[in-house]
Design a protein around this nucleic acid. Structure first.
Length: 762
DNA sequence: GCAAGGTC
């Protein structure tokens, strides 16, 4: 028997080893049977980890035992099968009974070894203690690689498996103990703001700390004025901008004196022209991180949706396996057959044909060979109209993947940079032009290019016409001149560092080695779900709960918050993998290290609590999902905790129909059971339907002028949405007329989210 | 009720 990490790998292994028959062992699990001359091989797929750590029964209730014991008592956690593991375990046991050899064929990485040897193998040896155990080390799933690896089986890499096991234990121990301790400490405060717990984890809390640091910089940023001087110069009907070489000026007087000196100048004398050009190599192959960055950046979607879309394309056999760290293809990778599929593609075909004509069919390679999976490539050629795409987003993601892949075979691009020095009334100005002179691979992947200036021959002619030595431009006669259209003196302000978005956050996590290719998008989502952070206009804001939590924790737990904690843990795990240390010693060391921090937290609890009490004092309110106010049920109060008051929503809700003073606020309780509009000055309420999630539309009801609202009802099988006007609806409740539903409105209807006059059917 | 890591 061969144990594989997933269905796709199981199938690939089986098909490489001989003719395959599939056996359904349950509704969802198929085993691949290879009948060769000498032996029967059964390849059993898993679904990633099939076991996980949870607290043992005695520790299940949060108040039953001291959270500290989760660190000190190794029996506080236990490994149990995941809820979906049943059929996989049955299959493992069934074939373990009839097999003489068990080959671990999970992914060739630490988690793969852990899945094979720690999650799956115990069920095998349980029913067949004498089974012989080996491992197949697969660097890719190409047929010849599999056959070669199968003929060269290795002894199981136990040290790799133990490294993964230690990771799982430490994450559970640290996460469970700290989450409980901090949550229980904050319980009175959390109750008041309708938050159930505050999660703490090796990765998420480090990430939150980094976001906190940026948030702090932004909140405390004091902008300073500075002045910049520029000149608009005319070349026929085109304008170019030259900036003063001493920009920017912090001294207003100096800037003004220079401006006064040149403001009426008529000519800018060209003193020197320097040209250079450089080649830009095609991109390197896509691994998961690069793909997520590419997709979130170009399609402006979240990391989570980007990964989900890649997974969907993979499951529909449109692209290759999307979870890989490698950006290097194996030498034998069959690029020709992929390229050939695109020869007749409407959009990519002509580019691909040119590649074949010029015999340029070798891709640019990257540097990381993680030994897991090949970089991400398309598997088939699809026109945008193909019914294989389930939605528009899949088309767009596919387009980016295909073009990025085809770009690997492209020619280098070339850009030319021109630096021109001007003299305007003896003040030096500079202008830089960057022009793309050879498109190269940008023709297939234009989204990879930076912004270039439009070509301009003017300076080329000038510099070729008068060849001069450029060593000292100030004393030379000018090469020519350009009319000055305008001299600008602009007062500007220094800007705070930018907020993170999903793209820059993924890059940050990669740089700091936080999370893995597969977990990064979900870690971001966890911080959002915990109402530690929120996403608005694709930017990340740290909310009050997250901000204060880190603000209070940083005094006590800096060693844990710093990403160095994770890197240190990973270094220790590495010593297990390379056999320098035993798992039990590393687990003990890290537990001891964390126990010191845990006890420090206990000692400093009063300080921590008093810092967190601010949360209550600044308003017993926190900002929740969709930027709605999550409030204390009894007493909704205005939101005083907006992280950036200057960033007010452009759209405001209708004024209170009772007092006409304030816009109404939509309030949704944390558990989504209470939803209503409230006026914060006169306490007027407008109720909303009990079921479904309300969303304010950017359109007013044409009958009463109140905001139209969409109600989204999500069910297991049938999701639907409908529209209503809260004011009309409440009136309808009062009068028992059942009015207020937009679908029943005779005069108007909602089209594309807007209340418009109803179209009359002829 | 909790983590992070796999995978459908």
């Amino acid at each position: 028997m061969i144990i594989s990490e997933k269905k796709k790998a199981a199938q690939a292994i089986a098909e490489a080893l001989g003719p395959v028959q599939t056996i359904s062992v349950s509704k969802y699990v198929k085993v691949f049977h290879v009948k060769s001359k000498s032996q029967d091989i059964y390849v059993i797929p898993l679904r990633g980890h099939i076991q996980q750590y949870i607290n043992s029964p005695a520790y299940k209730k949060w108040n039953a035992r001291d959270p500290r014991e989760i660190i000190t008592n190794s029996n506080a956690i236990q490994r149990i099968p995941n809820d979906y593991a049943g059929p996989y375990i049955s299959a493992l046991k069934k074939y373990a009974k009839i097999c003489t050899n068990c080959v671990i064929g999970t992914d060739a990485d630490v988690e793969g070894c852990s899945i094979g040897m720690m999650d799956a193998l115990p069920f095998v040896t349980q029913v067949n203690p004498s089974i012989k155990i080996m491992q197949i080390w697969l660097n890719d799933l190409q047929k010849n690689s599999i056959v070669q690896a199968y003929n060269n089986l290795i002894p199981p890499k136990w040290s790799w498996a133990y490294s993964g096991e230690a990771r799982a234990i430490l994450d559970a121990v640290i996460g469970f103990s700290a989450t409980r301790e901090v949550s229980l400490t904050l319980k009175p405060i959390l109750n008041k703001i309708n938050v159930r717990f505050t999660s703490i984890g090796r990765v998420q809390t480090s990430l939150l700390y980094l976001l906190y640091l940026r948030e702090n910089l932004i909140r405390n940023f004091v902008s300073k004025p500075f002045w910049s001087i520029s000149a608009d110069l005319a070349i026929k009907d085109r304008l170019i901008v030259a900036t003063h070489v001493k920009n920017n000026f912090s001294d207003k007087n100096l800037a003004e004196s220079i401006y006064d000196k040149i403001k009426d100048a008529k000519d800018a004398y060209i003193m020197s022209i320097k040209k250079s050009s450089k080649k830009i190599l095609p991109p390197t192959p896509l691994n998961t991180s690069k793909a997520l960055v590419l997709i979130t950046k170009n399609l402006k979607i979240t990391a989570k949706l980007a990964l989900k879309t890649l997974e969907d394309l993979y499951l529909n056999k449109i692209i290759s396996y999307p979870r890989t760290d490698s950006d290097v293809f194996s030498k034998t990778y069959d690029h020709l057959s992929i390229l050939q599929k695109f020869m007749i593609h409407n959009n990519y075909g002509s580019y691909v044909k040119t590649r074949f004509q010029q015999k340029k069919v070798i891709p640019r390679q990257g540097k990381i060979d993680a030994g897991d999976h090949s970089p991400i490539t398309p598997l088939i050629s699809l026109e945008p109209s193909s019914p294989k795409f389930e939605n528009d987003l899949q088309k767009k993601v596919y387009n980016l993947v295909v073009r990025s892949y085809l770009a690997l075979f492209g020619d280098p691009a070339e850009e030319s940079d021109t630096k021109v020095l001007f003299s305007i009334n003896e003040e030096e100005f500079v202008s830089r032009l960057s022009v793309l002179t050879d498109q190269g691979f940008y023709s297939i992947a234009p989204f990879l290019a930076k912004k270039y200036d439009a070509p301009l021959v003017f300076f080329d002619q000038l510099s070729t016409g008068k060849k001069t030595d450029q060593t000292d431009s100030t004393k030379k006669a000018p090469l020519g001149s350009l009319p000055v259209k305008k001299i600008n003196l602009r007062e500007k302000e220094t800007q705070p560092p930018p907020r993170y978005n999903d793209t820059s956050l993924l890059k940050l996590m990669e740089r700091k080695n936080l999370g893995t290719k597969s977990t990064r998008p979900s870690i971001i989502q966890i911080l959002i779900d915990r109402t530690y952070i929120e996403r608005k206009n694709r930017m990340i804001f740290v909310m009050e709960l997250g901000f204060l939590l880190i603000d209070a924790l940083k005094i006590i737990w800096l060693p844990f918050l710093d990403p160095k904690f994770t890197s240190n843990v990973e270094m220790q795990l590495e010593t297990i993998r390379n056999g320098k240390k035993l798992m039990k010693d590393v687990v003990k060391d890290v537990k001891d290290e964390f126990l010191i921090l845990f006890d420090k937290f206990r000692k400093e609890k009063p300080n921590f609590l008093s810092k967190m009490n601010v949360l209550e004092q600044t308003g017993n309110i926190t900002r929740g999902r969709n930027n709605q106010i999550i409030s204390n049920k009894k007493n909704p109060v205005p939101n005083k905790t907006s992280p950036n008051p200057s960033k007010k929503a452009k759209y405001s809700t209708a004024l209170c129909p009772n007092c006409n003073k304030n816009p109404m606020k939509l309030v949704i309780s944390r558990d989504y059971t209470k939803k209503f509009f409230v006026c914060e000055s006169c306490n007027t309420f407008l109720s909303l339907p009990k079921k479904g999630t309300p969303k304010i539309l950017k359109s007013k009801c044409l009958i009463c002028g109140f905001d139209a609202v969409k109600i989204i009802r999500k069910g297991q099988n049938n999701s639907f949405e409908y529209y209503l006007c809260p004011k009309c609806w409440n009136q309808g409740l009062k009068d028992k007329t059942n009015e207020g539903f937009c679908s029943k409105c005779k005069e108007y209807s909602i089209e594309n989210g807007k209340c418009i006059e109803r179209k009359i059917n002829p």
